[in-house]
Amino acid sequence: MTTSLTMDRTSAAASPARVAIADDRAMLKAAADLTRDLVRPDPRIYWADLIVSALVGYGALAAAVVTPSAGWAILAGLVSMLALYRGMSMIHELTHVKHSALPGFRTGWNLLIGVPMMIPSFMYEGVHNLHHARTRYGTAEDPEYLPLALMKPWTLPVFVIVSLLAPIGLLIRFAILAPLSAVAPPLRTAVVARYSALSINPSFRRRMPTGEERTRWTLWEAATSVWAIALIAATVTGVLPLKAFVAFVLVGSGVALINQVRTLVAHLWENEGEVMTVTAQYLDSVNVPPPALLPALWAPIGLRYHALHHLLPGVPYHALGEAHRRLSAVLEPGSPYYKANYAGLPGLVGKLTIATLRPR
């Protein structure tokens, strides 16, 4: 589902032509050569991370509902938000990992996280890979890119605040639009094209699924639709206390908010639609490596190494830290590799805000 505000790219003010960035062969070669042994995902890490995140997330959510103390309820809600955010972030791994290397993991993730939180894996699979396509990144065909640094300053707070409505939008998508579109072909076309992708580019349109993808899509969409309808029905009839439903929505909104803030600083958002080299894409992306500690919370599952991920999309999240250490140990101080490393969230938000304030 498109989670951004409806902003057209024409709202980006014109800026002087940027100098094209050539690929840095030394960095690209080092990245490939030094990480060949890191590409295999470890099933033990993936499954343990998923199960613990789900147990902590739902357990804390239940605690937030039953505790009589407002303070403890807020604390439990925050724990639930962070744990479920970590679990939901694993949808990113599903788009890159070879499923034969993690048997059953897609199914397990959908059952534990995707369906209950109403973001089944088809909402990202077939979408995120376009963001990594060599000739799509940063262009109008990239579902995960907007030139935010070139837009008006007001777009940044709106971009973040609108994410709070995500749980309501997902309930509408799966409890109402999904069943209605099953019997109304024109509506189905619109639902698939416009409301079936976790993207931030409002002009992005999905194609109709075919073959095996269609089978998976139908299965998980039906399961999520049943869950969403049951959630609403249980609340309306009083089977599920209103407090529990509100807590679920608030935690979902919190997850969407922190993810949108993380998205805000995942790139510099300075490209106006030109095809970019791999090095240019890397420099337009962001790493927040150690010693910073907080990124482990707001950019989990390897997302703190987002720029490195664009160099090495096939390296699993649990190996990105080692890949970063290896590259940092061998690349010269003048390498562009270090130019994508930043200290933390406040500086990145400030950098983007200042960029929007520059006269064009």
Rank of each mutant, 00 (worst) to 15 (best):
T2F: 05
M7H: 12
M7V: 14
R9A: 07
R18M: 08
I21E: 13
I21G: 00
A22Y: 01
D24C: 08
M27N: 06
L28K: 07
L34C: 03
T35D: 09
D37M: 05
L38I: 04
R44T: 15
A48N: 05
I51C: 15
A54V: 03
G57V: 12
Y58N: 06
T67C: 11
P68T: 13
S69H: 08
A76L: 08
S80I: 05
S80F: 06
R86A: 04
G87T: 03
M90H: 05
E93R: 14
L112Q: 00
I113A: 02
V115F: 15
V115Q: 15
M117K: 06
M118H: 12
A133H: 13
Y137I: 13
E141K: 13
L146T: 09
K152N: 12
P153S: 04
P157L: 04
L165G: 14
L170H: 09
I172H: 03
F174K: 08
A178L: 07
V183D: 02
A184S: 00
P185V: 07
P185W: 10
A190M: 14
V191A: 10
V191P: 09
V191M: 09
A193T: 12
I200F: 13
N201L: 00
N201W: 00
F204I: 04
M208K: 13
G211I: 01
W217L: 04
T218C: 03
W220S: 01
V226D: 09
A228C: 14
A233F: 05
V236T: 10
V236D: 05
P241S: 12
P241Y: 11
A247P: 13
V255Y: 03
I258F: 11
I258Y: 09
R262G: 15
L264D: 04
A266N: 03
H267R: 10
N271Q: 11
G273D: 08
G273L: 08
V275Q: 12
V278M: 12
A280W: 02
Y282F: 15
L283T: 03
D284K: 01
V286I: 13
V286Y: 01
L297M: 11
P300R: 11
I301L: 06
Y305H: 15
A307M: 08
H310F: 09
L311P: 05
L312W: 01
L312N: 08
P313K: 14
V315Y: 00
A319Q: 10
A319T: 11
L320K: 01
A323M: 08
R326W: 07
V330T: 14
L331V: 06
P336N: 01
K339P: 00
G344T: 05
G344Q: 01
L348A: 08
I354D: 10
A355G: 03
R360V: 08
